[in-house]
Design a protein around this nucleic acid. Structure first.
Lengths: 340, 340
DNA sequence: AAACTGAACGCAAACGCTTGCGCAACAACG
DNA sequence: CGTTGTTGCGCAAGCGTTTGCGTTCAGTTT
């Protein structure tokens, strides 16, 4: 049916071993024979069977990527960038979309990547048991987003610094009542919400502003959650004049809530987000920009490097990408008349 | 190192063949032996090698998914849904992100999925040569989005009907100067822009409105393109009082352009989009909603069905998902004073 | 009681490649 | 002109499964 390596060997008048070596650029084949084999292979349309070659060699030329919600902008963008790097290097990517808890459980118990991948890139934070499962694969591991894990090369950003710049911006504009829309950390050691919150507290303290727990609300990192959180903040006795949302999605939800309350941004309330979502510019959202695609690409590159030089020293187990506060139209000095 | 099928066989006191049959639920194994083997396998942590089993059986239990920009909301969402269906059915997915032309060329020339997948789902429209390449794989094929292709099971929506409902809505509101922001079809037989445009023309004609070519602008299906297109429309001698954007991204770009021109939506200009992007609700965009995730899931299901019953008659080569006009806040009757 | 069933299981041959090793052939050396 | 290297290539043994076929054995049939 399909042409196999022995077909090529026969047609080229050599042995299968020579074809194998020739096509993969291994030494032990003269240049002329190599060229001849390449020509024959091309003419026959020969493509090596991956299963056979990985069975024989142990190498799969495949990377496993596990990610939570790939439909969401952040993860989709990271995945997109990582995939480009992998495929440019000749690797295929096996995608595991672990958004739902049972998909996640299914993955970690049956571990379908075993013996199928040369490395895995994780876009989610595995818990200790999951980490152990991944490590048991015996392949290089890398991840994006915060949360240091043993055996992982992780690339992320300085969440503290980013959040500090956002909150400090609000302080510098003269705001004193600054709310925060955060996301619970949940059961996992996903440190981002914690770090961003700490930065918020630090900046308030450094500005001599007393922290008011009533100004914090949980937005669960979704648009709807952000809307609910903002609504809750507006219902307090003294609503904030500015809010720092830990993600752009939540910021957009907050803006929606404000609009529903007939409040204008930034005249009544300033809003600053985090991420620099592709649509942040569209809605004029001031936010702290992080290189999302950049993180995916960088993590992918680091993984490939580990594959190329397995015993090379790993200089940085944790690389931090730059962040930058992007000023747009949703922040302004507090309105002297106060909200509404 | 890792435990193989012979290890399990030895531990269970049976042959490897029996282990293989037992674990895969094949007949020819008594229930007690099967249970015993299952227990031993679980206890040893045995997981069959995919490469070996697919080499031997020809089955890979893997689906290839080729998609253009997986970072974009639409494709990310489709992919997300499809992946869930596949993985729930025990299939892995090999992802090929073919956004850039050379990634695309690379894919279709080296065809890395050959002998690696049991089926392929295409989220892009392959040109004739690419279609031939895919067909040469000899596996079931399915695709989303319009464009009928031989050998493909395709699921999509009725673009004409959707666009008609959007434009008709504007007409019913009383608009007579209705612009359209479209996207060029490009070299591929991507019929969506064509269909949506035809619907626009049809509705205008049916309403007795003369078509003005100056009211059409190309937005390339991106936010920036939509902004440029709207800017161009506003620069004409008689700007439209309403615009139909062929995608929500372009609609958002248009809204941004309008805001920059200090025009308000919908008082000065009405805007209606297409897709029901996850953020359409956030910006209050009136749009025609299509089941994006639904299309991905449905295409995946149809593919699995073909895999299960290879020679079943395929009742519908082309399935159409329902659409629905969602009224929000960006459309209103024309302002009697006219724009600006 | 002989012959015939299935059912349950083992044997061994694929599947298509990779790779350590061996063996020519030939060049370069003392 | 023997020796020692190189270089280029073929042999054959895997890699871990699946599966067609053969064997055994308990349980029907005549």
């Amino acid at each position: 049916m399909t042409v196999s390596i022995t077909d090529v060997a026969r047609a080229a008048g050599v042995s299968a071993s020579t074809v194998s070596r020739a096509l993969r650029g291994r030494p032990g084949v003269s240049e002329e024979v190599r060229a001849q084999i390449a020509a024959v292979a091309a003419q026959l349309g020969y493509i090596a069977s991956r299963s056979a070659s990985s069975l024989a060699s142990g190498r799969t030329y495949t990377i496993g990527v596990v990610a939570p919600y790939i439909g969401r902008w952040f993860f989709g963008t990271v995945l997109d960038a990582a995939e480009q790097v992998f495929s440019a290097a000749g690797y295929d990517v096996l995608l595991y979309n672990l958004g739902s808890p049972d998909a996640r459980k299914r993955f970690f118990t049956s571990l379908p990547v075993r013996k199928r991948v040369d490395a895995v890139l994780s876009l989610l934070i595995p818990d200790p048991a999951e980490t152990a499962a991944l490590r048991s694969l015996g392949v290089p591991l890398a991840g994006t987003v915060g949360g240091a894990r043993d055996g992982f090369t992780v690339v992320g950003i300085d969440d503290r610094a980013g959040a500090e710049s956002a909150v400090r911006h609000l302080v510098n504009l003269g705001h004193r009542r600054i709310g925060m829309i955060s996301g619970a950390s949940g059961p996992l050691q996903w440190t981002t919400p914690i770090d961003r919150r700490q930065a918020y507290l630090d900046v308030l303290a450094e500005a001599g502003i007393e922290h008011d727990p009533a100004l914090e609300a949980d937005g669960g990192y979704t648009v709807e959650g952000g809307e609910r959180a903002m609504t809750a903040l507006l219902a307090t006795s003294r609503p904030p004049t500015a809010v720092f949302a830990q993600s752009d999605e939540m910021a957009m939800g907050a803006m929606r809530a404000l609009r529903r309350h007939r409040l204008t941004v930034p005249d009544d309330v300033s809003v600053v987000g985090f991420d620099d979502h592709e649509l942040a510019e569209v809605v004029g959202l001031t936010t702290v920009s992080q290189p999302v695609a950049g993180q995916g690409a960088e993590a992918a590159r680091l993984l490939l490097r580990q594959l190329d030089e397995p015993d090379a020293e790993r200089p940085a187990d944790k690389v931090r990408m730059p962040i930058r506060l992007v000023l747009r139209e949703t922040t302004a000095p507090p309105n002297p008349r106060g909200p509404q």
